[in-house]
Computed example of a mutant assay.
Amino acid sequence: MERRSLLRAAVIGGASAALGGTLWRGAAHAAPAQPGPGPYGAPGSPDANGIRLPSGFTSRVIARSGQRVGSTSYTWHNAPDGGACYADGTGWIYVSNSEINPSGGASAVKFSSAGAITGAYRVLSGTRQNCAGGRTPWNTWLSCEEVDRGYVYETDPWGVNAAVRRDAMGRFKHEAAAADPVRKVIYLTEDETNGRFYRFVPAAWGTLSSGTLQVMVAGSATSGSFTWADVPDPDGSPTATRSQVSGSKSFNGGEGCHYADNTVWFTTKGDNRVWQLNLLNNTYELAYDDSLVSGTAPLTGVDNITGASSGDLFVAEDGGTMEICVITPDDIVAPFLRVDGQSGSEITGPAFSPDGTRLYFSSQRGTSGSSSGGITYEVKGPFRS
């Protein structure tokens, strides 16, 4: 176990925290991360799009709110938010939510094998404030409503099949979702100051029409063990889902969620933390906490999160310094890119193309600071695998 991990364990909770870190899962992500040199070097001067990138990386604008996407006839939505990529033959698709209330919904952009835009279209309409979500192993997009007693909608990234509202996944202020194909569950975050962390256990894996909503039960510490308890009334009325189970753990503003290798990570914006759940032994700890950083914290405004095949986590900022930061498996956190001149915005929807060479994301309000000023970008370069 690395000395840094032992020191951090002592800070965050004594003996119980000392059981965390590398003892839980080998050398990977011995939390919480500390600043250091990133694997790609520091972001350089702003490019023509106002994005500071490491050497070897380039950016392009994919879409702008209120304008046609490429040479298509489709007008891109306002306030682009959570997103995901899907393989499409030799090309791929990027799906993006719209955090507008009312209207909301989600749209998609299709790319050829060379990365050219070949189409754009709507995949979900008539919903409210679709913030984040998550992709499923059966290639659908779960679009989540960030409103009181909001729903999850299962959508078709190809725009062929009609979206379906998944009532069994509960009614609360949904944020993000992440599928776990090993335990055959979907993890869900809740964007409330006293939100909870949930999982949905489908009656049959591959369909979300019925199942059981459960909530994480744990103590008040920042590390320890946890269990799951059924939520008696997923409809959330008259009692909110977060208030139904005694002992369920409160989280301050649940945001992004990402699953990989028997681990699920999720972020809480109210306290600038990244949480890590080890699903092999049902323990949790902090992967990042800006208040535990030595010196100036490189990552603030913690929000959306995604992962690369390398094991690196990419965390987007809502505000902060408008950066996407990388957290490496060896506990280094560092800026990967910065968006200049857009301090009234937030970075949303980070997602990698299927081959891992391109990263998509949006600036939700762009240079104008308005929902109608959203910009969706692509960054291409030598991402490590």
Rank of each mutant, 00 (worst) to 15 (best):
M1P: 00
R4I: 09
S5L: 10
L6E: 03
G13F: 02
R25N: 15
A30F: 00
A42P: 06
P43D: 12
G44R: 05
A48G: 04
G56M: 08
A63Q: 01
Q67T: 09
G70C: 10
T75E: 08
T75I: 13
W76K: 02
T90I: 14
I93W: 00
I93H: 00
S98Q: 06
N101R: 13
P102S: 15
S103F: 06
A106L: 11
S107H: 13
G115H: 04
T118L: 14
G119C: 05
R122D: 09
E146V: 13
P157T: 11
P157C: 11
D167R: 12
M169H: 03
A176E: 05
A179Q: 06
D180R: 11
K184Y: 04
Y187Q: 02
N194P: 00
G206A: 08
T207N: 15
L208H: 04
V215G: 08
M216C: 12
V217C: 14
G219V: 05
S223K: 02
G224C: 08
F226Y: 07
A229T: 06
T239M: 15
S243Q: 12
S246Q: 14
S246R: 12
K249E: 11
S250L: 12
G253R: 00
G256S: 07
Y259V: 06
L280M: 06
N281P: 01
T283F: 13
V293D: 02
V293G: 07
D303Y: 08
N304K: 05
D312T: 11
L313E: 03
E317W: 01
G319D: 09
T321C: 14
C325N: 06
I332A: 08
V333W: 01
A334Y: 02
L337E: 12
D340V: 02
I347G: 03
T348M: 08
A351V: 00
A351E: 08
A351M: 10
D355L: 05
Y360S: 10
F361S: 05
G366M: 09
T367Q: 15
G369H: 07
S370C: 14
S370K: 04
S371R: 15
Y377H: 13
E378G: 04
E378W: 00
